Simulated scan of single mutants.
Amino acid sequence: MVTGGAGFIGSHLVDTLISRGYCVHVIDNLSSGKKEYLNPSAIFHNMDITSSEAYDVLLSESPEYVFHLAAQADVSRSTKWPFEDMQTNIAGTLNLLEACRHFPVKSFVFSSTSAVYGNAPTDFIDETCPPSPISFYGLSKFTSESYIKLYGDTFGIPFSILRYGNVYGPRQTSKGEGGVIAVFLETLMKNESLKINGDGLQTRDYVYVQDVVEANILAAAKGNQHIMQIGTGKKTSVLQLINLLQNVHSKKITSFHAQDRQGDIKHSCLDNRFAKRILTWEPQFPIKDGLRKTYWSYTS
């Protein structure tokens, strides 16, 4: 069962699982996912993760593996509507966990985020860094993590929590966490200037979507009540991103600076050594290669 299986990361995960012979069910309300991203071999349930229908589907299908990717993932939106953010991210997760209490799920794999750390005291973050979210989105994800751990301890639900860096790749929309690459590419396709929030020196750990998919699948098989960071361990600034894009874009890229976004963190780079050791996982796509593949997906 993949929640958010019509979304950016979820649809790539569904495609890969189906290509490897799994029967895959998808729960998605299509609020941000797209029906055209749904694999035709997936069994689709058009519903909200907070609904009783979603609870009932989990009970009736009793999947071996639950990959929970559905979320409200827009930092700015979480600041405008914290209650809505809480309902989707926390109440939705609880609804799924409650269902998982009643059948022998082998693994509950949760998509979390480096946003749980807020402005961390170090630029290179490992799993021992204390979470201190500065956005309601980060807070809702960290709260969901806490519920998952307690459900695991109390009811014996096996879980893996994956804290992603900034995921990018084909099918990403210009909205949501980590969407700067999608924003830039959509802007370039319109022949418009790129808007840089702040000075452009803010850094992120950009990880390609297929690397994240592989981490999810490995976590379902090898994770055991672990919290792991899924990133490249390398930081890239917004200005560096633009330079990399210029290498694949035929026209001269122009840009302008605007104010910083409220709730955004300045620097974030994830130590991925724990995930490498536990999952025997290794990111396969350097930023220049992943960016090139993503760019061509927008032009094809």
Rank of each mutant, 00 (worst) to 15 (best):
I227T: 14
V24S: 10
E282K: 11
P286I: 04
I27L: 13
L17D: 05
E84W: 02
L291I: 08
E186A: 15
D48Y: 10
T113H: 07
T93C: 13
I125E: 06
S107D: 08
N216M: 10
V213C: 01
T254M: 01
F159T: 09
D126F: 09
S112Y: 09
S135L: 01
T294H: 14
S78Q: 04
Q87L: 04
S62L: 03
S112A: 06
T79P: 00
S31L: 13
S51Q: 01
Q259L: 12
L185M: 11
G118A: 04
T187Y: 02
M189C: 05
H12W: 05
T236M: 15
L279I: 12
K35L: 13
H45K: 00
C100R: 05
S111K: 00
L194R: 06
I27H: 00
G138L: 02
P121S: 14
T294Y: 09
G223I: 07
W296I: 13
R20N: 14
K141T: 06
K195H: 08
S11Q: 07
A54S: 14
I134D: 12
Q246H: 11
K293H: 00
I161M: 03
S144T: 07
Q240V: 08
N119Y: 02
D205F: 01
A99E: 01
P82Y: 00
G178I: 11
I161R: 01
L185R: 10
P104W: 13
V180N: 06
G178K: 08
I125P: 01
L185F: 11
I217S: 03
K252I: 14
I9V: 15
D123K: 13
I227G: 01
P130F: 12
D153P: 00
E145G: 02
L188R: 10
R163N: 15
R163D: 06
S11A: 09
T79V: 04
L241V: 07
L239H: 11
D85E: 12
Q284L: 10
T122M: 10
V75H: 06
R261N: 10
E53L: 15
N89I: 01
S174E: 11
V14G: 05
G156F: 12
D28F: 13
D126M: 03
F44N: 06
S41R: 15
T173Q: 15
P40F: 03
V212M: 11
Y208C: 11
T113E: 04
D123F: 00
F124R: 06
Y37G: 01
S237L: 07
I181A: 00
T294S: 08
F83N: 04
S144L: 02
G4F: 02
A70D: 05
V167N: 09
V167C: 12
L245A: 00
Y37Q: 13
P283E: 09
G33R: 02
L96P: 03
L94Q: 08
N89L: 02
A71W: 12
I157P: 09
V116C: 05
C100T: 04
F8E: 10
W296C: 06
G263N: 13
L218M: 11
N119G: 08
G290S: 11
I230A: 05
I227R: 03
N29M: 01
